[in-house]
Design a protein around this nucleic acid. Structure first.
Lengths: 155, 155
DNA sequence: CGCTTGCTTGGAGTGCACTCCAACGTTTTA
DNA sequence: TAAAACGTTGGAGTGCACTCCAAGCAAGCG
């Protein structure tokens, strides 16, 4: 059974940065929206929506007005994806994006936001660990042949 | 009538089961909706809604029709709360409740559902661990005085 | 050239999980 | 006993994060 120690070993620090970085090297980094869809797993709708609400910088356009994403856009989407996994509301991510746009004087504010998020993530992990224990207990009962846990309630 | 306290001591994991079980002993377990609100942190609206959609068994009523919850109801709400933390959709929890109501022949189905949930939780924890690493890295950059991480994008 | 496939826009629609409302009955406190 | 607090209902409303739509350019291919 997996405990805190076990889960914690999944490297909270070094070495867990994905080895695959960018599909194309800097300089030739120009992706259509559908390439970004393939790379990020987001839908084109969502990418356009992110841009509309200010969660993406205004993306480069081809001479005919079509979006052309660059490597830095991919990196930003990666971070957004991570923040989304933490359950951070989109509105907060937009605030963060605005701070980045606003410049250097927002460093401490950004730091605060990330720290708060980090605390949330740690709390969330602890919650899940707790839930896991309950789940394991219940599963053991069910596996243990045919009698249900005492706490089953409905009807 | 056996309770979670008993089940908890089968301890697949140490010490993470809350020591406070029921506000009142079995036999005098009769709670108004607002007591349950205080105990669970859910709103009265939500409690009534859970009942409407079949996520709660039909709760006992006083002679004038007001809800009177029992200890087993509290246990069930506790489990629901845990499952909710896993991100399980309410519809799935309703399916689970229906299976419990349906009787013993649903054991294996219930087992499957819990197992699948367990896998989800483990995956989710791994994701969060990964996110934590990214967060830590970014926070280090910010803490490391005034220069932003390379991947900052907006504007 | 025509065909298919891809991209553009603003605005409307969807699904989930609540959340609130009005209008009224019940219980507790002063 | 009167007022305040708490409870009931069905149905409508909210907020979030997408998700889809129609109508119309644009690009690549045989």
């Amino acid at each position: 059974m997996e405990t805190l120690a076990d889960a914690a070993d999944h490297g909270t620090d070094v070495c867990s940065v994905p080895p695959l970085r960018h599909p194309r090297p800097d300089g030739q980094d120009s992706y259509t929206i559908s390439e970004v869809v393939a790379f990020t797993g987001l839908t084109a709708h969502t990418l356009r929506w992110y841009e509309r609400i200010g969660l993406m910088p205004h993306v480069d356009r081809s001479h005919t007005g079509q979006r052309r994403y660059c490597n830095a856009d991919l990196d930003w989407l990666d971070l957004v994806g991570k923040l989304r996994l933490t359950g951070m509301p989109v509105a907060d991510m937009v605030r963060y994006a605005e701070m980045v746009r606003a410049g250097d004087h927002t460093y401490s504010e950004r730091y605060e936001l990330l720290e708060a998020t980090r605390r949330d993530v740690l709390a969330r992990i602890a919650e899940l660990q707790d839930t896991l224990a309950v789940l394991n207990r219940k599963i053991d009962f069910y596996a243990d042949a045919g009698h249900a846990p005492a706490s089953e309630r409905p009807r």
